[in-house]
């Protein structure tokens, strides 16, 4: 079973990973975006790590709702409302249980991913974070490690795609050949999840 501490550690691990990879995320965002993905997301997850350490939410759902709220209020770019919605909706779907099973978490995360698709209007294949998150949720039924691999493969597989959402979509054909920064940071989020689970 996964308790609030597990989710707090997941958020902290994500902050560490995003901090470590911030320059790479920004470099990926330079040719097809506005070169702020790494710095925006680092600011957001640093705020998340601070908030969960200070407020110590007591349920898995409360951890993710708090994390999502902090992202929406601190990021300053499109990744704020998108990741914020992902975590808040996932957290709300978990309800106020003190512990959740991996299967319950998988279903909740699917609710969160669906909410991100509804918010941004992106579908799989549009070269967005969805291309890492959807395969990750599908693989999560198997294991955290499988989800990590699926997310990383999904992120890499965005390279030949043409962007259909966000600023990169204005570039049309020129967006082809670049790995999507949002899919890459989504893979970091899922990798941190697997790391937290010890897989």
């Amino acid at each position: 079973m996964l308790d609030a501490d597990f989710f707090r550690r997941w958020m902290t691990a994500t902050a560490v990973s995003v901090g470590r990879e911030a320059e790479r995320l920004t470099a990926l965002d330079s040719p097809i975006g506005d070169a702020d993905h790494g710095s925006n997301l680092r600011r957001g997850f640093d705020a998340v790590a601070d908030a969960v350490a200070k407020e110590v939410p007591e349920t898995p759902g409360a951890v993710l709702v708090l994390a999502g709220s902090r992202l929406i209020s601190t990021v300053g770019g499109a990744s704020g409302p998108l990741y914020g919605t992902l975590l808040r909706r996932t957290g709300k779907a978990l309800g106020d249980a003190a512990e959740v099973s991996p299967a319950q978490f998988t279903e909740a995360l699917r609710v969160g991913v669906d909410a991100v698709m509804a918010l941004g209007g992106a579908a799989p294949g549009d070269k967005t974070m969805i291309d890492a998150l959807v395969p990750a949720v599908d693989a999560l039924a198997e294991s955290f490690a499988a989800a990590r691999v699926a997310a990383e493969q999904g992120a890499v597989a965005t390279t030949p795609l043409r962007a259909r959402k966000g600023r990169a979509s204005y570039l049309g054909e020129r967006s082809i050949g670049h790995q999507d920064p949002g899919a890459t940071s989504s893979a970091l989020l899922i990798a941190a999840l697997a790391e937290t689970a010890g897989e």
């Binding site: 990744s79 704020g80 919605t85 918010l119 941004g120």
Partner: peptide
């Protein structure tokens, strides 16, 4: 106007 402005308002309306 664009992108994150739209998404932030939508997220605030839907979530908060």
């Amino acid at each position: 106007d664009l992108g994150s402005a739209v998404l932030t308002v939508k997220a605030l309306l839907a979530e908060g």
